[in-house]
């Protein structure tokens, strides 16, 4: 997926990478299901690019965003790329903080075992606390 992602993001180079040495806490909040709209895929493209900036990156999955992480996505018949394996590749980009809101899973009859990647399941209150500590919150 890595190579295809590079192509999808237009072969961005990192000449403009910030060299100031500032490390900020970035949280990407995913609240939308995949395929119905493009937000989840394009969010993932931002996440991958952010890895090149050596920032403190985390991802939060709330509401329908938890559907991005469910196992067993087969998209051949809708002729849309299945980008769910990319979540498993995030570790290779040193993006390891994936938080999933417990209430969102429960509302949808899902458990951690239904997800295709290791995540930290957190209560709404803990998610709120984590959000409040961020410097930049980009939501999709």
């Amino acid at each position: 997926m890595g190579e295809e992602m590079t192509e999808a993001t237009g072969g961005i180079d990192f000449e403009d990478e910030d060299a100031s040495g500032v490390i900020k806490k970035f949280m990407f909040v995913n609240r939308k299901a995949p395929y119905g709209t493009i937000y989840a895929l394009e969010a993932l493209e931002v996440v991958l690019i952010s890895a090149a900036f050596d920032q403190d990156v985390s991802l939060a999955f709330l509401d329908d965003g938890v559907y991005q992480l469910v196992k067993g996505q087969h998209t051949k018949a809708i002729d849309v790329k299945n980008f769910s394996p990319t979540y498993r590749a995030l570790e290779g980009y040193d993006i390891e903080k994936l938080y999933v809101e417990k209430e969102s899973l429960e509302q949808r009859g899902l458990t951690e075992a239904d997800l295709l990647v290791d995540v930290e399941v957190m209560s709404s209150a803990d998610i709120a606390k984590m959000m409040a500590e961020q410097d930049v919150v980009i939501s999709f």
Partner: peptide, 17 residues
């Protein structure tokens, strides 16, 4: 839609929010 509900579920009880 439920966006407001989601927001309040997460931060509705957070002092200072």
């Amino acid at each position: 839609n439920q966006t407001l509900d989601s927001c309040l579920r997460v931060v509705g009880n957070v002092q200072g929010a």
